[in-house]
Every structure is written in C-alpha cells, then in structure tokens.
C-alpha cells in the first residue's frame, strides 16, 4: 500500500516536470513546425541560470527562479532570431532545423561545460521536510513540483484558449496563410512561442535539478521523454501533452519499481511505439492540426 502511494507520487512528480517541457516542445512543433533538438539544452540553461544567479550574484531564490525563466525565454528568442528565422524559406526546413538544433545542443552543452565544469552541483533551491499520512512520508518538494507545474500548465491553457495572443498562436499552428490573412504577424507569433517554450523549459529544468543534480547533459533524457509524450499526445496538441505526461510519468515510476530502472525506459518506448502503430496521429491528435 505505502509503496504504491510512493510510486504513484513519484510518478506524478516526474509527470509534472515532463509536462512543462513537453508543452514547450509541443507549442513549437504546432506553431513553427519544427522539432527542437536543443530543448534539452534549454532545460540545462534554465537550471544553471538559476544556480548561477543565486550562487554568484547572491540574489534571493524568489527572484532567481523568475530571472532564470527570463533567461530561458531570452535564449529561446535568440534561437529564433539567429537561426530559425533564416531557415524557413528552405524547402527542407523540417529536416534542416532538426540538424541545426542538434548543432545548437552541442554548442550549448559545451559552453556550459566550459563555464561550470562537469561538477554535479546541487540546485540550491530545495525544500526540506514533508508530512506524514499514516505511515507514508510525503516530501513537500514533490508536492510543490506538482503544484507548480499544474499551475503553469493551467496558465498556458488559459493563455492559449482565452486571449487574443493565444488564439493567434493556435491559428498560426492550424493554418499559416489563414492566420496571415487575419492580420496576424506570424513572425512575432513565432518569436512569442519560442520565448514561452524557453521559459517553460527553464522551469522544468530547475525542477528537475532539485531532485537530481546539475550537469550539462541533464536535459537530454527528459527531452527524449518529452518527445515521446508529444508524439503520443499528437504533435502540436498542448492539452493532450499534459495528460500524457502525467500518465507516462506514473507509468515510468511503476515500471522502474516493477522491472528496474534499466528496463523502464526501453519498456516505455516499446509501449509507445506499439501505441503509435495503433494510433498514428497520437491519442489526442487529429490529422487537421498537424501541418502538412
């Protein structure tokens, strides 16, 4: 009983972190039609930014986290301005952008390595303590991660659903030409989406680093999980990505408990592939949303 609750709690925490980075990826895919292989790098940049702002600049964590989010957003914007913007015109944009962001991921990983070294720092942001329900100890840390990501996902959801900017982002994702004809400056929409995605990735990275440690490659494995989540949810489907993230997080925790850490990810991957063969556009995806 206790183990079941603990496993599920751990899974929900994982799912919460995955959700934030998966939503960022999904937004970019939907609006720009690009697969961002540098998303893991954004996770790392966010958490190192938080670490550096607190440790070297001595700024309180209450400000360090938002500042790190801003840093993530700025890097996202920079990726758009310096790289993505110039590649749209090429007929094989979809292929080329994957390659370009692979290059970017290597550059960023190595820059972090240059500046911070490979030492596995601990993220200063961590909440001690917890409470007990009967025999079970529930750390505050996990609850806060879950709460933060739920709140952020809800904010993104409201933003997309109910604001003029959010509608413009969704419109751009559905049909670029039609969005233009409504007067939507799609260049600006692209930039906004990249900023959002960068912010969300930064938070996701900070959360991740509070339960593990900092490392230049810390974002790689969560990025791959975010990829899988986005694929299962249907590319470009933001809400689906949240549910799938939570589901896969729990599933991963159960697998880790049941068949060991080593085989949890391959088993998950196998499950995902089988389900994709069964539903090629993902569980929440539809042919129409995906750009063709």
């Amino acid at each position: 009983m206790e183990t079941a609750v603990l496993v599920i709690l751990g899974g929900l925490t994982l799912g919460g972190m995955y959700a934030l980075s998966a939503i960022g990826l999904s937004l970019i895919w939907g609006a720009l039609g690009m697969l961002n292989m540098a998303h893991g790098a954004l996770l790392a940049i966010g958490s190192y930014a938080c670490f550096a702002i607190f440790t070297y600049l001595g700024i309180s964590l209450i400000f360090a986290v938002p500042l790190a989010m801003i840093a993530g957003g700025i890097v996202g914007l920079a990726i758009y301005v310096v790289i993505v913007r110039h590649m749209f015109r090429h007929p094989s944009f979809e292929t080329n952008i994957i390659i370009a962001t692979i290059g970017l991921a290597i550059v960023s990983e190595n820059l972090i390595l240059r500046f911070f070294g490979a030492y596995p720092y601990k993220q200063p942001l961590s909440i001690q303590g917890g409470f007990r329900i009967g025999e079970i100890f529930v750390p505050y840390q996990n609850l806060i991660i879950l709460a933060c990501s739920s709140v952020l996902v809800a904010i993104v959801g409201v933003l997309l659903q109910n604001t003029r900017m959010g509608r413009a982002i969704r419109a751009t994702a559905m049909n670029k030409d039609a969005a233009l004809l409504m007067g939507v400056p799609i260049g600006r929409v692209y930039a906004q989406v990249m900023v959002f995605s960068g912010c969300l990735a930064a938070v996701s990275g900070i959360m991740l680093s509070t339960i593990t440690t900092l490392s230049p490659t810390m974002g790689d494995s969560p990025m791959i999980k975010a990829f899988i989540i986005v694929a299962v949810a249907g590319l470009g489907n933001v809400y689906g990505a949240f549910y799938v993230a939570i589901g896969l997080g729990v599933l991963e925790a159960v697998f880790q408990y049941g068949i060991g850490v080593r085989f949890a990810f391959p088993a998950l991957l196998l499950l995902v592939i089988v389900s994709l063969i069964w539903r090629p556009y993902g569980f929440f995806g539809s042919k129409t949303v995906v750009r063709n």
């Binding site: 419109a171 049909n175 030409d177 039609a178 233009l180 007067g183 400056p185 260049g187 949303v289």
Partner: peptide, 23 residues
C-alpha cells in the same frame, strides 16, 4: 508582408475558406 497589407484594409476570403479547423 501579408499581415501588414491586411492591416491596411484589405480582407481576402481565400478559395477553400481556410477556416481554423480546431477552433
């Protein structure tokens, strides 16, 4: 760019309507 032209006062109902399908 198209969005500027539209902003200057020209609306275009394209062939096939191009409605936003998921809205």
């Amino acid at each position: 760019s198209a969005d500027r032209i539209v902003a200057s006062g020209i609306a275009h109902t394209p062939q096939g309507d191009l409605v936003f399908p998921e809205m």
